[in-house]
Design a protein around this nucleic acid. Structure first.
Lengths: 227, 227
DNA sequence: TTTTTCTATAATAGACTTATTATATTGTAT
DNA sequence: ATACAATATAATAAGTCTATTATAGAAAAA
């Protein structure tokens, strides 16, 4: 079941969107506040984000830019003003598509479908799919991970690290790269920190932490998540 | 320099498209015939394909379906008839975007730009590029090597060395040259080290390490990878 | 408290060296 | 020419060393 996040302050429109999405087999969640919307989006549990440009508290452009720093998922912009379109298209701030109000819900569905298809084609999987894999299930809301039906409590950093690796399976990342991704480019820190976190995650999710199945060590190169 | 393939029988339109693309720093190639267009596209030398639906000889839909079987790159459809749009959107036959004639060249450029951006975003960092020669497969993103469907575990140095040779097939490299490439010019070390690594790689990937098929020895000269 | 980060130490994979054996090439004598 | 020896180069095996990672525990931060 694909999950869509709607960031939209007009509840009439948001509700309509949600109903249509649900009719088409999607799970939709509405957030009316920009600040909260950004936070929700950053949990990385959604497959697509639909965001209105005109929001109270936080600028839509800013939200998208922030999301794009961390996530690769499709972002569809909704705008009431036709003039915004050029701005959206011209500036490369990370949105994938745009719709001007009023738009037909069918149009929205069609576009979401198309973006999901492409994402899956290029990445090989969608977010929802990666969250449950083999015996490992990542519950994003609670930061809990379920390994072979046994719930495991991860700390924030442990969770972020695992999620990053799990959403990029079969790719080797150096400790420095992982550090940059999780802590941010600006942060200066020790790669040992990454090693320590990896160790702690392994203790919690691996059957035998000495012979890890999920997070593999490539000596001298980095770590790799095996799905 | 990004390469665009235009499959379009109307030379007026195709020429206009090409000129605009070139003005924007792209390399554009025009093919007027559907059959040939498909063949060209399949060479996988292009970054984006722009295809007209109405073509002599071969149906545009069919072409796109064929391309999509093999390639993940963005495909943009151009159609003269407005009615086609619904068909394009409704059917999932692999196109990424559509434009109805007449359209502004700027619009085409904008869309191509946007698709390229997204493609790079989703594929760029995690290039799951695979180098394959005969039974040997090297997956760059995951550092995995497979020989005749059997995964082989290489160490970092072994992997680097094999990758270097495999990406430069049919070229002879002296041990000193290989050493410089893998270890860096500044490093001083023994050429024997290279020989030892070659030996270890052979043990892992060659059927008969004594008569190597992949990494051949050129007595007194160096080593050569045979594809 | 709990979580995160740092530091010191231990474990170890694998990188490198060395010594030895095998093989190809070249040169020389028959 | 052919056979053989001499020489140069490569393959191999084994052992040493180093760099990297794992781990534990303390310190700092939240």
């Amino acid at each position: 079941m694909k999950r869509i996040l709607i960031i939209e302050d007009d509840m009439d429109i948001a509700g309509l969107e949600r109903d249509y999405l649900q009719l088409n087999g999607y799970t939709a969640e509405i957030v009316q506040d920009g600040e909260l919307g950004l936070k929700k989006a950053m949990t990385a549990m959604y497959d697509v984000i639909v965001v209105d440009l005109m929001l109270p508290q936080k600028d839509g452009f800013e939200i998208i830019r922030e999301i794009r720093k961390k996530l690769e998922i499709p972002i569809i912009v909704v705008s009431a003003r036709n003039e915004d379109i050029d701005k959206i298209r011209g500036l490369d701030f990370g949105a994938d598509d745009y719709l001007t109000k009023p738009f037909s819900p069918a149009e929205l569905i069609a576009r979401i479908k198309s973006h999901l298809r492409r994402y899956e084609r290029l990445k090989g999987h969608t977010i929802s799919e990666i969250i449950a894999h083999r015996g490992l299930e990542i519950n994003i809301a609670s930061h809990k991970v379920i390994v072979n039906s046994i719930p495991v409590q991860l700390t924030t950093k442990e969770y972020e690290l695992l999620l990053f690796l799990a959403t990029n399976p079969n790719i080797v990342f150096s400790k420095a790269h992982i550090f940059d991704k999780i802590w941010g480019d600006e942060c200066y820190g020790d790669n040992a920190t990454v090693a320590v976190h990896i160790q702690k995650i392994r203790k919690k999710i691996e059957k035998d932490p000495t012979n890890p199945e999920y997070i593999e060590t490539l000596w001298g190169t980095g770590y790799r998540f095996n799905p």
